[in-house]
Design a protein around this nucleic acid. Structure first.
Lengths: 250, 250
DNA sequence: CGCAGACTTGAAAATACTCAATAAATGTGG
DNA sequence: CCACATTTATTGAGTATTTTCAAGTCTGCG
């Protein structure tokens, strides 16, 4: 069984077994983090370089007034943080949402690899580009879309991204998300998420499964409904959920 | 007179004259872009690698429903786009807001440099980290802050960033921003920006100067008022506008 | 069974939006 | 330098969306 990191990087394009093995050979040790525990704390020195083997985590900022904004969710196969390579302080925290198995990387060996394997370096650069794309999409979502569309977009993104790391691709979100988590992602309140989700359920777009997990009933239908386009994920195979020529914009 | 790129990168830390000259030696040619013209178009192949010598531009997405979200503003000294190094399609557009002088870079020579000059590579990586920090801060701003604080934050960031590239650092924003631009940055309407800005002016925090330019009357006062902390810019010298120990969060 | 945490629902309030009319500012040509 | 056209900004009134507060319900788990 291969690591979700490799699965994810293969969505960029060709990544030979040699490059994959080389990357895996940088592993230093695994570490298990319990839900609610920090993988990285705001204002702390960043040193560790790691990826997520299993479990979900979140990047977030806590504000002086007690509010919280979730910047991004981290799924199996996501790398956190290439930025750790330069000496700087974290401007946000990362907290486990489920039990998270981390794979810590030996920075020295990793840097050697970057130098010597151009294909691998390109794939890792791609993962940075994808992460930036995800951040930008999040800005658009929060800045210019209604609560209903925001929520639909978030769910669609999560379903897509979990598939990239080897998770389910049938519309089921593999972990239970609380209303509060969705609210803090989307800049809304849990109460309003509750109402909005009820609407989506009423309209048959989303269903609630055992253990509080959500399922998108028909991914294509919801994507069409919500003007969702996966181009920002920069996947190699052009399998946009929606592949309308030209899409939305000027 | 040195390029704003060099000025900006020096805010990361030591950058010797040798490294600076090496970077400048990658210049291929300059190109002038008129206001309203695109430097890069959504869904187009990215090939060019360039930085901004003078003038302001914006990264933005145009939505199917005619709305626009500005993702980030580009100021003199900003690099656009290191991501161009990998073969992918832009997920957003970049448009000039003023006459913009671009400096196009020879990608081959640039990559050589990255390989051979570790100090320069670190500085460029820093600029990527800073850009990501700016995107994240923008998410927090839009997601969890009131219109008034959002606007104050945006102005504070712009004043700070223009100083990094050699622009004024006295609170005057060097170009006139329309209400519509500010609105599209912050996920608000121009009308509401107008009202909010009037409030800030009424309270003596901001003044309107000739040619529609804005000035922050007292940067520290506004920063305190708006819970603004520059840590996310990852500047080497810890000259946070606010240097309260520990700051806001857990 | 019963508790704790998460969810739902209602009503009232706050925030931001829309539409529309007026006022400044900017640029153009005579 | 002035009149005019054009764009941008301000202001008011009414509306829509989202929040807040609070009470009640569901669910999973020991």
């Amino acid at each position: 069984m291969t690591s979700p990191v490799i699965l994810r990087l293969r969505h960029h394009g060709k990544l030979g077994d040699g490059a994959a093995d080389a990357l895996l050979s940088c592993r230093k040790r695994n570490r298990l983090v319990e839900p609610g525990q920090c993988l990285m704390r705001q204002a702390e020195e960043m040193n560790a370089l790691f990826w997520i083997e299993s479990g979900w985590a979140m990047r977030h900022r806590n504000l002086a007034n007690g509010r919280r904004q979730i910047l991004n969710l981290l799924l199996p196969g996501d790398i956190c943080d290439l930025q750790g390579l330069i000496h700087t302080r974290a401007d946000h925290s990362v907290t486990a949402m489920t039990p998270v198995m981390l794979c810590e990387v030996d920075a020295g060996r990793f840097l050697d690899l970057l130098h010597n394997d151009g294909q691998l370096a390109a794939s890792l650069l791609w993962s940075v580009v994808q992460e930036e794309g995800i951040l930008r999409e999040h800005i658009v979502r929060i800045g210019r879309r209604s609560a209903r569309i925001r929520l639909a977009h978030l769910l669609l993104e999560l379903v897509r991204r979990q598939a990239l790391g080897g998770g389910p691709s049938d519309g089921l979100i593999e972990i239970a998300l609380t209303r509060e988590v969705m609210a803090d992602c989307l800049g809304l309140t849990p109460v309003h998420i509750s109402r909005t989700l009820s609407e989506l359920r009423r309209d048959g777009l989303v269903t609630l499964e055992p253990q509080g997990r959500l399922r998108i009933s028909d991914i294509d239908a919801l994507a069409r409904h919500a003007d969702y386009d996966t181009r920002y994920l920069h996947l190699a195979r052009p399998d946009h959920v929606l592949d309308r020529a030209g899409g939305a914009q000027a």
